[in-house]
Design a protein around this nucleic acid. Structure first.
Lengths: 255, 255
DNA sequence: AGGTGATTATTCGTATACAGTTTTCGAAAT
DNA sequence: ATTTCGAAAACTGTATACGAATAATCACCT
């Protein structure tokens, strides 16, 4: 499944067309009165944030247009908007995920240390009861997946957990900034997830963060997410050292 | 001069066409290898920042396209990009200057308090000697413009000053995030600039920030930019109170 | 005379088409 | 067999055209 061409080239356009269009146009809850460009934009953002795009995948407007059953223009608008927002990188040949190097990853850890403590504090104050219950369920899923050694579900649960509390951040500008770096965060996570030794650190970090959320303790949430980011950076640095030692770039692939 | 229709409706298309096209395509220094959309975008950004657009002016893609002598598509791309960047607000009838949401402005001040201290500290360490000299010259320009009462040049000088030190931020992810919110920062600035009482606050704040830069004092830079943001928020809140009190939207016009 | 409905006009959104540019693949020659 | 040159394919940018939606104006009815 390590394809160098766009994912959409190999998907039957008709099926995806119908599926996505019904997803887009029937559900009035998600993409309400939006136009086609905005709907495509949102779907692609979701895919990027879910890590469904490989680093070598190229998003081409014609392919996207074919998948959604529209002309190139809405697809192009969506892609250009994504590029401007930093989700994608424009090139002479299609749009790709921005390739992240070691230096930039360290920079993003720096940024996360600046932003996420405040974000977690805000979430601790604004999370609703049901959202907290959802977070708890997700945390339980993560624990179960870790014990089962199910790396994929663990990854997914951690992502759901993070999305859960980030979406509750009341400062929408801050929230959008965090979501913008979600893709890089995911990429780094995939590296650290490769080593099962890190799994307890991740799950326990989330658990302690959740405890702060449940107790509505903004200060504790702030402290614990900061600690979590530091731990994540340490885990990344260890993984990076290991990768440098072995000189195997294939470890950076999405598993 | 308080017109409700678009400015471009009353301009002879041919003259502006020729003027802007030569401006765009002949000068290879400003809009280098950019495409038509980007060039139109930059011209319109300049106009907006210069306050050449009234709150009731509507930018319509067909009019912009006619003015620049291109088709609707590049004009539409530029307008949509401007809208996404926060310079304009899309509506059912043309693009207008955005009514700036009070809540969102406060959110962005929050974000700035999180990011800019670190950014200024990094700049204090990474600014080159020539960049510092340029900042000094810009600061001198700002002082001169303030004494002359030249609001436009004061605004431009402050923008240049900010761009100068933000571009020196060594953490590129942090820098890009700041630049992304630069537009909203500018929008808020335009409100506070309307009251000349704020001009000394702004210039003196920049001057103290510059002193920290020149002394390579990262701690002082961090502290002073934080203070500067707080002062800016206070000035904004005062302007907001004033506007609410009078309930006269005409006071928000660019006088 | 005032309100309500319909019609018209304006503008946005989308589709199709075309030109320019770059990349890649293949063939031929050394 | 390798390298280089050329051709074709693909992608982007731009132009023109058409359909849909919304707002404004006018006419008709009360």
């Amino acid at each position: 499944m390590f394809r160098s061409r766009s994912v959409y080239d190999f998907l039957p356009p008709q099926r995806n067309l119908g599926k996505n269009l019904t997803d887009l146009k029937s559900s009035s809850n998600s993409g309400v009165g939006q136009n086609t460009s905005a709907q495509i934009h949102d779907v692609l953002v979701g895919r990027i944030q879910k890590g469904e795009l490989g680093l070598k995948d190229r998003l081409v407007d014609t392919a996207v247009a074919a998948e959604f059953g529209v002309s190139r223009m809405p697809a192009r608008d969506a892609l250009m908007r994504l590029a401007h927002e930093g989700y994608l990188e424009p090139s002479t040949k299609g749009f790709t995920l921005p390739r992240i190097d070691h230096q930039e990853i360290l920079e993003i850890f720096d940024l996360r240390r600046l932003l996420e403590p405040r974000a977690a504090a805000l979430s601790a104050q604004s999370l609703s009861e049901v959202e907290i219950l959802l977070l708890e369920a997700t945390l339980k899923d993560a624990r179960f997946a870790m014990e089962e050694g199910d790396q994929e579900n663990l990854f997914r649960a951690c992502e759901t957990f993070r999305n859960g509390w980030v979406n509750a951040v009341s400062n929408s500008s801050l929230r959008k900034t965090l979501q913008r770096y979600m893709t890089q965060v995911q990429a780094v996570r995939m590296m650290t997830f490769a080593d099962p030794e890190n799994h307890p650190i991740i799950v326990e970090g989330n658990a302690r963060l959740f405890e702060a959320f449940r107790q509505r303790d903004a200060v504790a949430a702030s402290d614990r997410i900061l600690r979590f980011v530091f731990d994540g950076e340490a885990a990344y640095l260890a993984a990076h050292e290991e990768a440098q030692k072995h000189k195997t770039p294939s470890a950076a692939r999405n598993g």
